[in-house]
Design a protein around this nucleic acid. Sequence first.
DNA 1: TCCTAGACTAGACTTAGTCTAAAAGAAGAT
DNA 2: ATCTTCTTTTAGACTAAGTCTAGTCTAGGA
Lengths: 139, 139
Amino acid sequence: MSDLVTRLRQRSWRMTPQRRVIAETLDGAHVHYTADEILERAAGRMPEISRATVYNTLNEMVALGEVLELNLDGRSKRYDPNVEHEHHHLICEGCGATKDVHTVGNPMDWLPGDERHGFAVTRASITFRGLCRECAAAS
Amino acid sequence: MSDLVTRLRQRSWRMTPQRRVIAETLDGAHVHYTADEILERAAGRMPEISRATVYNTLNEMVALGEVLELNLDGRSKRYDPNVEHEHHHLICEGCGATKDVHTVGNPMDWLPGDERHGFAVTRASITFRGLCRECAAAS
DNA sequence: TCCTAGACTAGACTTAGTCTAAAAGAAGAT
DNA sequence: ATCTTCTTTTAGACTAAGTCTAGTCTAGGA
Ligand SMILES: [Mn+2]
Ligand SMILES: [Mn+2]
Ligand SMILES: [Zn+2]
Ligand SMILES: [Zn+2]
């Protein structure tokens, strides 16, 4: 937990009650929530919060670079407050469980110069897939 | 071009006129079309083809393992007939241009055993991002 | 020829997310 | 304190992508 609220205030981003609840929801659990899951939890603490505010706030935090937006499954986007330590994701194809993982070495090194098509390559994200222990046992 | 139509017939999959038009559209260009782009092109050759058939057919080809479904941008899914040669993707964050790329070595080797959380890991897909030559020059 | 399972279709429906216009709230100037 | 202005929040309309349904069509087997 890297205190997203603190990081956001240091960026002199206006910290409203709504934004605080959203940031605390995101940062409290180290899981990868969808916008709807965040709305649901935020509404538990602030019932009048609106869906538009949740989406606006998440998009602003992503634009500030303080939250990552993940497209892991082609369904709803997921939001990840863990921007401090580069990592990738491992997903169970059975139950959808998602783990943070760390690779040996730098993924940028896996792409040789003649495969870069003249691009200035800046980032690489890896999604590993497989079956978790429970799902493997059940199949 | 690996002749998707031939591969599908070898799987004894009923080859209707609609399915043939969709498969030929997909395989003809080595790009990554969305379902809507495929519908548009297929409708050019068979105006009465329906959207539901395009979606049904794409989903069946994916289930057969003869087409890959890509979630590159969190918007619409893209379909890739190139299942014969493992590859990954490099995307320009400026214009969205997408290239097939090949890594040095096997991505599965980048994930050490103690980062696997007991999963049986079977696949890894990497998305590299950056700016293409034109977009880099323009910025 | 008739039957039947599978394939096709139009359009309703669902889900995820964006947009709009108005109301509310914060901050600065007087 | 009051006015002004800018930002944020809100409800709900709207859009985009995809799924589902129920009826129709069609090819191949008895
Ligand atoms: Mn993560
Ligand atoms: Mn490809
Ligand atoms: Zn699982
Ligand atoms: Zn570009």
